[in-house]
Design a protein around this nucleic acid. Structure first.
Length: 1099
RNA sequence: GGGCGUUUAGCUCAGUUGGCUAGAGCGCCUGCUCGACAUGCAGGAAGUCACAGGUUCGAGUCCUGUAACGCCCACCA
C-alpha cells in the first residue's frame, strides 16, 4: 500500500497477508529459526476450547491476553511455545452429534450402537471440529498450529491410561456405590458443577406412616387423631408424620428418623432467634417474631410427640411403610431437625444425599427404586415400570385412599437441573469410579511416589503447592477459591455414562472361588491364571484388584497372596484388571474367554484436560519404561515443562486448574505452571451473563468483520482490569445483507486507535521521508523536542514492561495508547512539522534576545534530517511496543517501513539497526534509562503550558464571539509572554513550533515586555501569558473571564492555606508533603496577585 | 448459610504503601474540512467517591457497621 491516498485503515486489506507472512516465516513455531539465540523457554498451554464450540467473547479475551504475553516474550528473545488444541468435551460433543443424527436419520444412539456412534462423532470432529482454531487464527493468535493437539488423540490417550493405571495401582482410584446427580434424559451422572438450581412449582406432601405394635393403629382398629387443635396423643402416637416434596421416593424408604434431643435443638434455636430479634432491623423484626411464635407453638404441641417418638426409636420401634407394607425402623439421628417440617424425616438412602449419609451411619439397606431412564425399578412393587412423574401421582392417590395424607401444600421447590439436557436431576445411587482426594493412612501415603513433598493425599498436595508459592495466582485473591475448594477434599467422580471419551481401562468380571473352581480359575491352565502368572505383563503394566462381595475383603496381588486354596478364600469376588497399555489381541482373547468385560463408562472430560500441560508436551513418551513410571524425555517435555503462565476464567479454577496442579505433581513431580492469570468475565450492559439463548452475546468474529481483529484485541486488553466482571454494553446492528448482529461501541476505541496509528505512520511519517538517511547522532545534537519524545518513549516502555510483568493488561494498553496518541501524535509530530516543511532554512534566530550558547544544537542544516531520524526511530520503537496488542496493523506498517526506511537507529545511541524483516520476531526494546530526563520533560511542560494557555484564551474568545454571532478567530494576532530569563530563552528558541501550535502570528517574550492593554491572561509560576483581545471581544467579557479564573484560584488557595496553618499538619506530615504544600501555596498566591493586578488594570 | 467481589462523571471503568485542584474512553456542549487522521483537531461542562460511624494532621484509599448488586460454594425433608 503506497502511502499516497488518504483513507481510513482497512483491517481486512492486510490481516490475511500479514498472517500468511507470519506462517511463512514459521514465526509461531517453538524455537523459530530466526538466528536469535533463544535458550530460555516460555510456554503456555491454551485452555482447550470444546471442539464443538465457537469462539465467544470470553475466549477472545483470554486468548488476546495470552497472545500479548507470548508475543512479548517472543520479541524478548525467549523460546516461545504456545500450545493449542481442543477438548473432546464428552457430553457436549456426544449430545451435539446425537442431535444431528436424530434430526437427519431419526435414529438414537442405541439404534447405531457404540462403535458406530463413536465413528460418527469422529467424522463430525474431522469435518467441523476445526472451526474454533480457525477463529483463533482470525484473531491473530500466535499459537504453534503445527503442534495442535486434541484431548482424545493418541498421545493424550496414552497419558490418560498411564495416569489411570498409576492412580489405580496406588489405591487412589476406587469404584463404589455413590449417590450421583442422575440425568434421566442423557442417562448419565452429571457433576455437581454441571447442575444448576431452579425454583419450580411443586407440592409439599404431609404423609402419615402407621406405627407397628400394640400402640400403633395396626393393633388398635381405629385412629382418629388429627394434628390440628390440641394433640390428643402426647403419650400414645399411633402415626409418624413426615413431609416430602418427592412422594414417590417413599417406595425406597428404609427408615424414619427423629432427633435424639429435640428439646435442646428447639431451645437453642429459640435462643438464637431471640438474640436475632434484639438486633434485627425494623424491616426484619416482624419476620423474626413470626419465627419465634412458630417455634413456641412447636415446643408446646410438637415437642412432646417428638420426645415420645425419640423414646420409641430408642426402644427399636418399627413403622409400617405404607404401599410397600415393609417394616422399617424408627431411628434417632441428628439429621432430623425438630424445627423443620413435621420434625420427623423419612430416610431414603438411595435417593437423597443426606439420607445416604444417615443410611451409612445406621447401616440401613439402600433400595434403589429408579432405573437409568427414570422409571420405577423392580424394587418399586406395584409401581414398577411407571415413569417417576406418573408414580408420584399414583403414590399420592393411593396414600389418599388409605387416608394417610395429612395435607398437601403448594410450594416453590429449588430443583437441580442438568446443565446439558435441562431435565430435572434425580439423586441416584449408582456405580461410579472415584479418585480419592482426601488424606490417606500415613503408611499408605508413604508408599506412593506420586505424593510429592510428603503430602498425605492428592488434594493436600495441590493445596500445599500454592501455599508454598510454587504456583501464584493473579490477582492473588483467587488463591482462596482454589484453596477453599480443594480443602473440602471431596472425592472426584471420574466416570461418565457416555460413549464419547477415554474409555475406562478396566476389565471386570465376577469369580466364584471354592475348592471346586480353584484350579480352573487360579491355577495352571486356567485362563485367568495366564494373566496372573505375568505372561502379559507384570505389576507395572497390569494391576489386579479383587474384592470379595460379602465382606469387602480386598486382594491386591492374588498371584502372590493366594497361592494355594484354603477355605477362607471361598466366596464371590469382583475382579478388576487395569492395564496400562491397550491389551494385545492375544490378551484381549484371553480376557474375552475368561468372561472379562471392559467397563462401559468413559472418563470425565476433566480427567484428560487435567493432564493437558504434560500430556501435550509428550508425557509419558513413546516408550515409557513401564517400571519406574518416569517420564520419557520427548524433547518438548524437558524443554518446556513446567510451563510458565496459564490464563483462564475463574469458573474453572476448581474444575481444571486445581486438577492440573494435582496431576502435574503426581505425574511429573512438579507444578504444571508457575503463574495463573484469572481474567474477568464479560457481561452485557446490564450485568447479565452473555448467552446464545438470551441473545445478548457478542460474536468476536462479527467484531473482527466490523472493526478488525486488532480493534477487538486492543479493546479487550484495555478492558482487562483486575475486577471480576466487565460490563460491555451491547447494541444490535442490522447488516446490509439483512443479517442482524450484536456489536458494542466499546470496540470503536480499538478501531480508532488502530486508524490513528495507521494515519500517523503511513500518512505522515512515511510521506515525509524523502531524502531520509540516518547518520550517527549523539544526544547533544538533538533538539529539545527530540530529547523530550525519547524521554517519554522511555517512560512509556518502563510503564509497559512493569504492567506486563504484573499481568496488568489494561495499564499496559493504556500506557502505549497515551504515548502514541497524546505524546507522539498530538505533540511530537506537530512539533516536527515546521522542521520538515522548511528543509533548507535554519531556525530563525531570536530578535528579542541575543544568541545564547545553546544546550540544544542542530538548529540549522541537517535539522530536518534529525527530525526524520527521530520520527522514524520512535515509530519503530512504538511499533514494537504495540505489536503484542495489535499485531496486524503494526506488522503491516513495519513491512512498509522496511521498504522506505530499512535503517532506523539513532546510530550513536544504539547499534546499527539489525535486519529485522518481521516485527513478530523483532527485538523487544530494552529500557535506555539515559534517554529519560525529567529536566527535559519539565522544560517541555513549560512550552506546553504556554501553548495550552494561548489555545485556552482563543477558545474563550471564540466562545464569547459565538454568543455574539461573530465568526470565530483562528489565529491570534499577538501573544505577549512575560517570563523569567530562563523561560524566555526557552520560548524564544522554540518559537518555530510554539507560534503555529499556539496559533498566533507574533510572539513577544521577555522578562520585562510591556503588558498589552485589554488582554486576557493565563498565569503560571514562571510566566504570564497575555493576549490582547480588544479587537475580538468587548472588555466586559474579558473581566468576567478573569474574575472566574480568580475565584477558582482563591478557593483552592484558601484550602491550601488552611492546611498550612494547621500546626499538626506542619508538625506531623511528611516534610516533603509540607514543602510541596508550601510551594503550591506560594505559587497560587503569586498567580492570584497577578490576576488581581490585571483585573485592576482592566477596570 | 459460607466465601469472594462491586458501589467513583450520563455510560463503561482507572485511581498501587493514606498526601498535587479525584482521572480516562465514550456520550454531551462550543469552535474548527489549516497538507496524516472528522475513526480527526482545539477547548469545555459534568463527581456529596453508596450510606453511617471511627482511626488520622490528612480518608476515594485504612477499620467497623448498614444498604444494594454480582459471582463462587454449600444446603433447603
Amino acid at each position: 500500500m503506497p502511502p499516497t491516498e488518504s483513507k481510513s485503515y482497512d483491517p481486512a486489506s492486510i490481516e490475511k497477508d500479514v498472517f500468511a507472512l507470519w506462517q511463512e516465516r514459521k514465526a509461531f513455531e517453538a524455537g523459530p529459526k530466526d538466528g536469535r539465540d533463544r535458550k530460555v523457554p516460555f510456554c503456555m498451554v491454551i485452555p482447550p476450547p470444546n471442539v464443538t464450540g465457537a469462539l465467544h467473547l470470553g475466549h477472545a479475551l483470554n486468548n488476546t491476553l495470552q497472545d500479548i504475553l507470548i508475543r512479548q516474550k517472543r520479541m524478548a528473545g525467549f523460546n516461545t511455545f504456545w500450545l493449542v488444541g481442543t477438548d473432546h468435551a464428552g457430553i457436549a460433543t456426544q449430545a451435539t452429534v446425537e442431535k444431528t443424527i436424530r434430526k437427519d436419520e431419526g435414529k438414537s444412539r442405541h439404534d447405531l450402537g457404540r462403535k458406530e456412534l463413536v465413528k460418527r462423532i469422529w467424522e463430525w470432529k474431522v469435518k467441523f471440529g476445526g472451526r474454533i482454531v480457525e477463529q483463533l487464527r482470525l484473531m491473530g493468535c500466535s499459537c504453534d498450529y503445527s503442534r495442535e493437539r486434541f484431548t482424545l488423540d493418541d498421545g493424550c490417550a496414552k497419558a490418560v491410561r498411564e495416569t489411570f493405571f498409576k492412580l489405580f495401582r496406588d489405591g487412589l482410584i476406587y469404584r463404589g456405590k455413590r449417590l450421583v446427580n442422575w440425568d434421566t434424559q442423557l442417562q448419565t451422572a452429571v457433576a455437581d458443577d454441571e447442575v444448576y438450581h431452579e425454583a419450580v412449582k411443586g407440592h409439599f406432601y404431609h404423609f402419615k406412616y402407621p406405627i407397628v405394635g400394640e400402640r400403633g393403629p395396626l393393633a388398635r382398629t381405629n385412629s382418629d387423631e388429627r394434628a390440628g387443635g390440641t394433640p390428643a396423643l402426647p403419650a400414645e402416637p399411633t402415626h409418624v408424620h413426615i413431609a416430602t416434596t418427592r412422594p414417590e421416593t417413599m417406595l425406597a424408604d428404609t427408615a424414619v428418623a427423629v432427633h435424639p434431643d429435640p428439646a435442646a435443638v428447639m431451645e437453642k434455636r429459640a435462643a438464637e432467634l431471640r438474640e436475632k430479634l434484639k438486633e434485627a432491623s425494623d424491616k426484619d423484626r416482624p419476620d423474626v417474631q413470626v419465627a419465634i411464635d412458630d417455634l413456641v407453638e412447636r415446643q408446646k404441641t410438637l415437642l412432646p410427640v417428638l420426645v415420645k417418638l425419640r423414646d420409641m426409636a430408642k426402644a427399636n420401634q418399627k413403622i409400617m411403610l405404607p404401599l410397600m407394607n415393609r417394616e422399617i425402623p424408627l431411628i434417632c439421628d441428628e439429621w432430623a431437625d425438630p424445627t423443620l417440617g413435621t420434625g420427623c424425616v423419612k430416610i431414603t438412602p438411595a435417593h437423597d444425599a443426606n439420607d445416604y449419609e444417615v443410611g451409612r451411619r445406621h447401616d440401613l439397606p439402600m433400595i434403589n427404586v429408579m432405573t437409568p431412564d427414570g422409571r420405577v425399578s423392580d424394587e418399586g412393587g406395584a409401581y414398577k415400570g411407571m415413569k417417576f412423574t406418573d408414580a408420584r401421582k399414583k403414590v399420592v392417590e393411593d396414600m389418599e385412599a388409605l387416608g394417610l395424607v395429612e395435607k398437601i401444600e403448594d410450594r416453590m421447590i429449588d430443583l437441580g437441573h442438568s446443565d446439558r439436557s435441562k431435565s430435572p436431576i434425580e439423586p441416584y445411587l449408582s456405580d461410579q469410579w472415584f479418585v480419592r482426594m482426601g488424606d490417606l493412612e500415613p503408611e499408605h501415603a508413604a508408599k506412593i511416589d506420586g505424593l510429592r513433598h510428603k503430602a498425605p493425599g492428592l488434594a493436600q498436595m495441590a493445596i500445599d503447592a500454592v501455599a508454598r508459592g510454587d504456583v501464584k495466582f493473579h490477582p492473588a485473591r483467587y488463591e482462596n477459591t482454589y484453596g477453599d475448594w480443594l480443602g473440602e477434599k471431596r472425592d472426584w467422580c471420574i466416570s461418565r455414562q457416555l460413549w464419547w471419551g477415554h474409555r475406562i481401562p478396566v476389565w471386570r468380571t465376577m469369580l466364584t472361588l471354592s475348592e471346586k473352581t480353584w484350579s480352573s480359575v487360579m491355577h495352571t491352565g486356567g485362563k485367568f491364571y495366564r494373566i496372573l502368572s505375568g505372561e502379559f505383563g507384570d505389576e507395572n503394566s497390569i494391576c489386579i484388584h479383587m474384592r470379595r462381595a460379602h465382606d469387602d475383603l480386598v486382594v491386591r496381588d492374588p498371584a502372590r497372596d493366594m497361592r494355594e486354596y484354603t477355605p477362607e478364600y471361598q466366596g464371590w469376588y469382583s475382579v478388576n484388571l487395569a492395564f496400562k497399555d491397550l491389551p494385545s489381541p492375544e490378551l484381549q482373547q484371553v480376557l474375552d474367554d475368561s468372561g472379562f468385560e471392559q467397563d462401559p463408562d468413559v472418563l470425565d472430560t476433566w480427567f484428560s484436560s487435567a493432564l493437558w500441560p504434560h500430556s501435550t508436551l509428550g508425557w509419558p513418551g513413546a516408550s515409557a519404561p513401564s517400571s519406574g513410571l518416569k517420564s520419557q524425555d520427548s524433547g518438548l517435555l524437558s524443554q518446556f515443562y513446567p510451563t510458565q503462565v496459564l490464563s483462564t476464567a475463574r469458573e474453572i479454577i476448581t474444575l481444571w486448574v486445581a486438577r492440573m496442579v494435582l496431576t502435574g505433581l503426581y505425574n511429573m513431580g512438579d507444578v504444571p505452571f508457575t503463574d495463573v492469570v484469572i481474567h474477568a468475565v464479560i457481561q452485557d450492559g446490564q450485568g447479565r451473563k452473555m448467552s446464545k439463548t438470551a441473545g445478548n452475546g457478542v460474536d468476536p468474529v462479527d467484531i473482527i468483520e466490523e472493526y478488525g481483529a486488532d480493534a477487538l484485541r486492543f479493546t479487550l486488553a484495555d478492558l482487562a482490569t483486575e475486577t471480576q466482571d466487565i460490563r460491555l454494553p451491547v447494541k444490535p446492528k442490522k447488516l446490509p445483507d439483512g443479517r442482524s448482529i450484536n456489536i458494542s461501541e466499546k470496540f470503536e476505541k480499538g478501531r480508532n486507535f488502530c486508524n490513528k496509528l495507521w494515519q500517523a505512520s503511513t500518512g505522515f511519517v512515511m510521506r515525509n521521508l524523502d531524502g531520509y538517511s540516518p547518520k550517527p547522532l549523539d544526544p547533544g545534537s538533538l533538539r529539545l523536542e527530540d530529547r523530550w519524545i525519547l524521554s517519554r518513549m522511555t517512560a512509556c516502555q518502563q510503564s509497559l514492561d512493569a504492567a506486563l510483568e504484573k499481568y496488568r493488561f489494561s495499564d499496559a494498553a493504556g500506557a502505549v495508547y497515551h504515548f502514541m496518541w497524546d505524546e507522539y501524535c498530538s505533540w511530537y509530530i506537530e512539533m516536527t512539522k515546521s522542521r520538515l516543511n522548511q528543509p533548507e532554512a535554519p531556525a530563525r534566530e531570536s530578535k528579542t534576545t541575543p544568541p545564547q550558547p545553546s544546550r540544544y544544537q542542530g538548529e540549522g542544516a541537517g535539522d530536518r534530517a534529525t527530525a526524520q531520524q527521530v520520527l522514524v526511530y520512535v515509530l519503530d520503537r512504538l511499533l514494537r511496543m504495540l505489536h503484542p496488542f495489535i499485531p496486524f496493523v503494526t506488522e503491516g506498517i513495519w513491512q512498509e517501513l522496511n521498504k522506505i526506511a530499512p535503517q532506523r537507529g539513532l546510530t550513536i545511541l544504539f547499534d546499527a539497526a539489525k535486519d529485522e524483516p518481521a516485527l513478530i520476531t523483532a527485538q523487544w526494546s530494552s529500557i535506555e534509562t539515559r534517554l529519560r530526563s525529567t529536566e527535559i520533560e519539565s522544560e517541555m511542560d513549560r512550552l506546553h503550558g504556554l501553548i495550552k494557555g494561548v489555545r485556552d484564551i482563543r477558545a474563550d474568545v471564540n466562545d464569547y464571539r459565538g454568543k455574539a454571532k461573530q465568526p470565530s478567530v483562528r489565529t491570534l494576532a499577538k501573544v505577549v509572554v512575560r517570563a523569567d530569563v530562563d523561560t524566555t530563552h526557552l520560548i524564544d528558541r522554540y518559537r518555530a513550533f510554539v507560534t503555529p501550535l499556539a496559533g498566533c502570528d507574533v510572539l513577544e517574550v521577555g522578562p520585562s515586555v510591556a503588558k498589552p492593554a485589554g488582554a486576557m491572561s493565563r498565569v503560571h509560576a514562571t510566566m504570564q501569558v497575555y493576549v490582547p483581545v480588544a479587537d475580538y471581544v468587548d472588555l466586559g467579557a474579558v473581566k468576567v473571564a478573569e474574575q472566574a479564573k480568580l475565584d477558582e484560584l482563591r478557593t483552592v488557595f484558601e484550602r491550601e492555606t488552611a492546611r498550612m496553618s494547621n500546626e499538626d499538619f506542619v508538625k506531623r506530615a511528611d516534610p516533603g508533603v509540607v514543602a510541596q504544600a508550601k510551594q503550591r501555596a506560594a505559587d497560587l498566591s503569586s498567580r492570584i496577585l497577578m490576576i488581581e493586578q490585571h483585573l485592576a488594570e482592566l477596570s
